[in-house]
Design a protein around this nucleic acid. Structure first.
Lengths: 214, 214
DNA sequence: GTCATCATGTAAGCCGTTACATGATTGC
DNA sequence: GCAATCATGTAACGGCTTACATGATGAC
């Protein structure tokens, strides 16, 4: 799941580990606190597997977007700054990762296959849904919907049959409410997918600041 | 977390492992599919630690509802094995667990301390909240509330500041809705706690006994 | 001169999973 | 005789956490 998130972020732009973590917790609220103890090994593993490539680079990408984008040929600069502490950009060497073709294959594979069980991994998939083909999106949403509906049925029958004490009952009822809300959300998403016939392409396209219709 | 659930169920009545698992998935929907591979070791661990005591026994604690519909084969099997103990002992011997005083201490400790982070463990705590003293209940609910409110603030600011693509945005917005719903639920629970002055439940009176705080 | 932040990593361990092993009983 | 259900367990592995180690830099 962490791999998916990493690949998804790097699909957009190259980043170093620390920054990946920042985005994980701020952009995707889902993977709220991934620790470095799992992040860095994951990056090394992905690189060893050929899904990522790393380069030492300064690439000072500020929290607001629009980096200089000329991220090539920054390696010399960092080498210089390491022994020559210049005021702007002389930190510990960053390892800037970019995704490879193999990594893109892995990404779409992870994005597509299996595991619609977990709420977090599902949320992650939806967050990266623009990288999916339209029909893959819909099937993802509908698979999730059926899972939730089944769970809702189970919860309902459990509430009916067993006599729970007020607290436990409140928990199950609240769980049911949450499931209903999730299902309504999915229905909205599915409807939106259906009405707009491939309005947004599955290809990653950049829209500038807040220019999307919804 | 599994320990807490086990102890909570056994606080009510003695059960064997297989039945504990059934209740875990049917009563508490939270710990939906705990596998035997984690359940049985947990039981053994708790017993080794003195929190549980086991006895071989048929002790057929029949659930509140005896489903007459379908699959009476199992029930029949159990009854027969009770009436007619074969030389080998009939059905495979159940290990019926009951909670000890030490286990009750552990239970209240687990129930009280730490970890309001995770939704599941929190839900579990609330489900067993009748075993808590009224003020402990309220503080549990309020701690959770403040956590959720903080997270909501973070999610909100993240939505404002960063330009996400429509799918990611939809996920964060839905997350925010979920948080709001959770907070409303908590508010209702807290209000209910405040209005009724210690109304229900046979609370275990172990609170306030002079011992180690831990 | 020391603290906070940025930056990368390793080691140990927790908590859970899947897969496997065993075995009695009943229904078909 | 074979699958399904009840019942208890072991072994191996997975993913993530905490705690620890290192180090540069800028601010106070």
């Amino acid at each position: 799941m962490l791999d998916l998130a990493i690949l998804g972020l790097l699909e957009e732009r190259e980043l170093h580990g620390y920054e990946i973590r920042r985005r994980l917790r701020e952009q995707l609220g889902l993977l709220a606190n991934v620790s470095f103890g799992s992040l860095y090994p994951a990056l090394n593993r992905l690189e060893a597997g050929g899904a990522l490539a790393s380069a030492e680079g300064p690439a000072k990408a500020d929290p607001p977007e629009t980096p200089p984008t000329g991220s090539l040929s920054g390696e010399l600069a960092v080498l210089r700054s390491r022994r020559n502490p210049s005021p702007r950009g002389g930190r510990r060497a960053r390892k800037v990762y970019r995704i490879t073709d193999k990594g893109r294959d892995l990404f779409t594979e992870l994005l597509t296959k299996g595991g619609a069980e977990d709420a977090r991994s599902f949320g992650l998939r939806v967050a990266f849904a623009r990288h999916l083909a339209p029909q893959a999106r819909i099937s993802l949403l509908e698979r999730r919907r059926s899972v939730l509906e089944q769970r809702l049925g189970e919860v309902r029958s459990a509430t009916r049959e067993s006599s729970l004490d007020p607290y436990a009952r409140s928990v199950v009822e609240h769980t049911a409410e949450g499931l209903e809300q999730d299902i309504r959300w999915l229905d909205r998403m599915i409807a939106a997918e259906r009405t707009q016939p491939t309005a947004r392409s599955s290809v990653s396209e950049r829209a500038g600041k807040g220019g999307d219709p919804r």
